[in-house]
């Protein structure tokens, strides 16, 4: 096999990031950490998209995944901001910061 291409390195990293994030979502308790974990999962997805864009590069890298990732970053941050607002509100009203009490 040839030397590893750039996109293969980052694609492998994206798989590890996605898995790390997924494990974090399931295993972390605190709202705050779960939100961060979903962000890391999302980063893994974006990294794989951009890696594929680099693989399909001609004169420039495939712009469609790039545009999707930019859109995705903004949407993911909006969703995370909303999740964070919910978490803060729950914390302010009930003092809870995880879902352990009713499970």
């Amino acid at each position: 096999m040839n030397a590893m291409e750039t996109y293969q390195i980052y694609l492998t990293a994206s798989a590890v990031l996605f898995t790390t994030g997924l494990a974090g979502v399931f295993m972390a308790r605190h709202f705050f950490r779960r939100i961060v974990a979903t962000k890391i999962m999302g980063a893994g997805v974006f990294l794989s998209l951009v890696s594929f864009a680099e693989r399909d590069a001609l004169e420039f890298a495939d712009p469609v995944p790039h545009a999707m990732v930019i859109t995705g970053i903004v949407v993911a941050v909006s969703a995370a901001a909303f999740a964070l607002a919910l978490a803060r509100r729950i914390h302010q009203l009930t003092g809870e910061h995880d879902f352990t009490t009713d499970s």
Partner: peptide
Amino acid sequence: VFVLLTAEAVLNVRDGGGLTE
């Protein structure tokens, strides 16, 4: 998920394609 993605990364080597053109 990890195994599938890594397999895609390492085994499925092709170049060109996509929507770049």
